[in-house]
Amino acid sequence: MTAASYRPPALRTAATAKIAGQLVYAIGDIHGSYLLLRDLLARIVADAAATARGRRPIIILLGDLIDRGPHSAQVVEAVTWLQRQHRFEMRLLMGNHERAMIAFIDHPAEAGEWLLFGGDATLRCYGVEPPGPGAPTDALIAARDALLQRMPAAHLLCLQQALPMLTLGDYVFVHAGVRPGRPLTEQEEVDVLWIGAEFTASTERFEKIVVHGHSIADEVQWPGNRIGIDTGAYRSGILTALRIEDDWLRLIQTGREDVRAAVA
């Protein structure tokens, strides 16, 4: 299905949640799925052209641009290109995979575990053969050096400058979630990048509606206190964006025909 033939799902109300009059598109974990990202962005452009009404739309990437999928470099290049445009305001959040890659670049001997959960795919995408499990320190350092030689400086800077958290109106955007019982102003990076079931199983009413990725699910999760939009693009072939306006939510997805609304 092409972007031109795509029909957005019906609008559904999101209680009384506001986002300061903005038009926001939050995109879940991409993980090197460049072709899906390209198609999803085309759909977002078409949607914004019909609905922006003079507003400058905001695109929020919820982290984990890289690893696991085959085209991490192309994804980061697309994001750096979009950051130079003026049609959209781009906001990139730090994901645990970006943080792991940066740790590997800073301290390859201590952070080689990045290669075991998707970093090997990113190295290959930049033309670097990853060391095998249990590789010695000199092999890890050599791989880091080769990555720095091949990765454009703009790519690394883009990832290094990613935000840990973003608040807009009644929503807060993070990669993984927030620690229950702790104010948003006191959240630690390890939690907003890595937290799992302790957050997703919580029924606590947080200060704001939490929009997040990280925890893969077959469908968008909307239990009332959070909206999880990681639909596992690298393995499911489904990449999800959530369009947010005052009082309204809409899903925009690519990779399957049966697009459904985010809320019941």
Score class of each variant (00 low, 15 high):
P8M: 11
P8R: 11
P9W: 09
A14Y: 08
I19V: 15
A20I: 03
Q22K: 15
A26T: 01
A26G: 03
G32L: 02
Y34C: 05
L35S: 15
L36E: 04
L41V: 15
I44K: 11
V45A: 14
V45W: 02
A48V: 11
R55F: 07
G63W: 03
G69M: 13
Q74G: 12
V75S: 11
E77Y: 12
V79W: 10
W81A: 14
R84I: 02
Q85R: 10
Q85H: 04
R87L: 12
E98C: 10
E98D: 14
A100P: 07
A109W: 09
E113D: 15
L123S: 00
Y126I: 01
G127E: 03
V128T: 00
D138G: 02
D138C: 05
I141D: 01
R144P: 01
D145E: 04
L156F: 08
T167A: 12
G169W: 03
Y171L: 11
V172Y: 11
F173T: 08
Q187E: 01
L193I: 07
W194G: 07
G196K: 15
F199W: 06
F199S: 06
F206P: 09
E207A: 04
V210L: 06
I227V: 04
T240I: 00
A241I: 00
R243T: 12
E245Y: 05
R250L: 09
E257S: 11
D258R: 11
R260A: 08
A262E: 13
V263I: 14
